[in-house]
Simulated scan of single mutants.
Amino acid sequence: MEAFERTGPVKVVVVEPGYASYAAESEVLTPLGVQITALDWQGDRQTLLRGVADADLIMLRDTAVDAALFDAAPRLRGLVRYGVGLDKIDLDAARERRIKVANVPDYGADIEVADHTLALFLAVRRRIVTRDSAVRKGAWEVGQTEPLQRIAGATLGLVGYGRIARAVHKRFAAFGVDRVLVHDPFLDEQGAAAAGVIRVTLEDLVEAVEILSFHAPGRSDLRPTLTAELIARLRPGVVILNTARGSHIDEAALSSAILSGRVAGAGLDVFQREPPDRDNPLFDLPHLVVSDHTAWYSEQSVQQIQQLAAAEAYRILTGRIPLNWVNPW
């Protein structure tokens, strides 16, 4: 067990945006004499750097963390990410400085994300948003102006096949989607056979599916997974869903594909830039349903993620190894 050397009070900085209350963190960490501070830096880099200068540990959701931030916090011994994704954290820089980084991959949000993915799909495929708008304006019995396709019998494509994607698979199966193609380099043939899915290349997947859903981490260089070239190879009439990372999709190419009718519609919870610009051309498209990176959210998931993150912070501050240590040395 490593000793955690410090002088004066221990300071934990929670980088906003965070949560409505930090009672769960306080309950776990206050017995250690920890002072918890919420840093509302409002997007100003210098405020962020000043705010973490005397931190022993940082807790955050989606703020990008680079070597410069680590250097601005010489007392820093740990960082806990509320959630799973690590693409915004420079793990190598943290390792070089002996700063333990932990995430919270098992807070149960596979339930919420899977539910949200299906909700976005149904809203797009059944034209809920446009029908709602039209009926409110007095239209009636105009469904055939927006052709609707049956869900049962469709082919589902999943990019990534971890816990969330498997939950999505289960929900779509209830609607009669029984052929599922998966692109996931970590899934072997035996695992695919056991799950009842077919392993394919990304190129073969985009050409064959009628529903395409992303459930994998984004690339470290933020290059899109679904490029303009791959979008051009999509099967006409496909519905695209993204509740993973905004970097997966070339938004300009998607916009053009929806306008041309090649893509029937899309449900997006994440964007290349968050929050997205208000003049994002995607927002002018009638067959796009969006939400604000909230697929993971429920009151229950928030409570669980805060409790688990606090437990990881406790382990780091008491010189122990966090359960989900992502940059070991």
Results as ranks from 00 to 15, higher is better:
P276Y: 03
G265Q: 07
A208T: 11
A313W: 02
R50P: 00
L148G: 03
D110H: 15
T145F: 14
P147T: 08
K100F: 07
I249D: 07
H116W: 12
T63A: 15
A53N: 05
A64D: 05
L39H: 11
A114K: 05
F186L: 13
L285R: 13
A23Q: 13
T30D: 15
R50N: 14
V180E: 00
V197K: 05
H169D: 15
L122D: 07
A194Y: 04
G237M: 05
G108Q: 04
R45L: 12
D292N: 14
G83A: 08
N324P: 02
S255T: 15
A311M: 05
L148E: 10
D279N: 11
A264S: 13
I240M: 08
E146T: 14
L49R: 13
D54R: 10
P31V: 06
A23D: 14
A93N: 06
G138D: 01
V129K: 12
V180N: 00
D204R: 12
P276F: 03
A3L: 10
A208Y: 00
L32S: 12
L69E: 06
V270P: 01
P217H: 09
L39R: 08
E251T: 12
K11H: 09
E189L: 04
P224D: 09
D188Q: 02
S133V: 07
L49M: 14
I305E: 01
S220E: 13
N242K: 08
H169M: 06
A167I: 04
Q306P: 01
D178I: 01
L48G: 10
P105G: 06
L158Y: 04
L202P: 02
L234Y: 01
L49N: 04
P275W: 04
F214W: 08
D221E: 11
L187M: 09
W325Y: 14
L181T: 04
I151D: 03
G162S: 07
H183R: 01
A232M: 02
Y297C: 01
A64K: 14
Q144F: 11
A102H: 09
V84I: 14
I249F: 09
M1R: 07
I316K: 08
V15Q: 03
Q304L: 14
E5P: 00
L156G: 02
K170M: 06
S213H: 08
L259A: 15
I36P: 01
V52I: 15
D44M: 08
R131P: 00
Y161F: 15
A20G: 11
P275A: 04
V142R: 12
I128N: 01
R95H: 02
L122Q: 05
M1T: 09
R75L: 14
